[in-house]
Design a protein around this nucleic acid. Structure first.
Lengths: 204, 204
DNA sequence: GAGACAAGTGTGGTCTGACCACCAATTTAA
DNA sequence: TTAAATTGGTGGTCAGACCACACTTGTCTC
């Protein structure tokens, strides 16, 4: 049962430590030196374990202060996996399609979660900003959907999208207004229809 | 844009190296000593980068042989994430929600793309297999949606999902049938309603 | 006494060099 | 020809050194 590699053994023991002590995000975990002495392993092995967990986004290190459990949001991981996995999946259609579908998902979520206050803020912004970009607009939408995972995935897709389609698309201002009206009325059909219009997609 | 930490810089450069050389799973990447000399970093830093990628399951090391790119499998993550994430209720909700929404997106895509032949195959399978799992079912659905990106994302989400919810959910056989009926009739409302039923979600 | 400065301590960040264990190919010996 | 020993490359681990940084403490000055 003992992990053959020391750094894996350290990860394992650290997990037990966290479970037993009931440590939560923000809490401090042992320093590299302390843990290496306590478990009788070299400091470099402890570092390998910590670095791995850090890349996973599970812990956070602050030089001069220490190492802490992190508020996990699936961030680093999705990013990394993205680059490693999506490398040969650059089919233009898939990226395009997936981005659109996720944007629509977020619109649906916004319809459920949004309150008048949020909508008002969005309205103010769109009226004040003369030349906002499509990205800025949907960033706000997806933020309002309050799903961090969607946000992360969307950010990656956006990058791919631009690498495939360097020309900055321009959309009609009126279409954004229509979309906001759909949201304001909490009308899913109307909102999605406005989205289709905005993106020049053929509707069903 | 230089990463402040050397090991992150090494991860970055390694990724570029992989992209440029077009390396695939199974291919060998530079040995720790070679890379440390080539990039002018210490071997321990290279090790930190390699160990992190290994824990992620992206590379594989064989003592005495070398280090190789791996065909991604999220197995390691499953146990890991559980310990670190469990407290974070919002992250949990995000994973759950995102997985569901993507499954629904794929259902919509299937509605557009599916032909009778595909549907027949799915029908045959579901009638032959007595005890299929939910994963197996939706894997087929998502495959049929013919969007590789969604498939990749879904596979990752599935891993997250099980790390958060180790209990294998069981669903009703009839609900799958209803879902297939919805697909057969190319009726989006009916299909999604069946999905909501299957997953015990409150409909709108 | 209050504030500013200095030293000290603890932390992560990095590098170097040294072993060990393992594997594979080559060379050597039977 | 075959089996054994050697050799070189690889990952696995450790110890120690030094740096950069953050915080605490103590001291000095006003």
């Amino acid at each position: 049962m003992t992990s053959s590699k020391v750094y894996l053994e350290i990860v394992k023991q650290l997990r037990e430590m966290i479970t037993i002590d009931g440590l939560k995000p923000g809490d401090k975990i042992p320093s590299e030196r302390e843990l290496s002495e306590r478990l009788n392993f070299g400091r470099s092995s402890v570092r390998e374990a910590y670095r791995a967990l850090e890349l996973l986004g599970l812990i956070e290190t602050r030089r001069g202060e220490g190492t802490f459990i992190r508020d996990f949001r699936g961030n680093q991981l999705v990013q990394l996996l993205g680059t490693f996995i999506l490398q040969d999946e650059k089919a233009k259609r898939d990226v395009f399609e997936t981005k659109n579908y996720i944007e629509m998902d977020c619109l649906r979520l916004v319809l459920q979660r949004m309150d008048d206050h949020h909508l008002a803020i969005l309205h103010d912004w769109i009226n004040k900003e003369e030349h906002f970009t499509d990205d800025e607009f949907f960033y706000r939408i997806i933020e309002m959907s309050d799903n961090h995972l969607f946000l992360r995935i969307w950010l990656i897709l956006k990058e791919y999208y631009y690498s495939l389609n360097p020309i900055q698309d321009t959309y009609k201002f009126e279409d954004y207004i229509l979309l906001l009206n759909g949201l304001a009325e909490k009308d899913e059909a109307k909102t999605l229809s406005a989205y289709y219009n905005l993106r020049n997609l053929s509707s069903f």
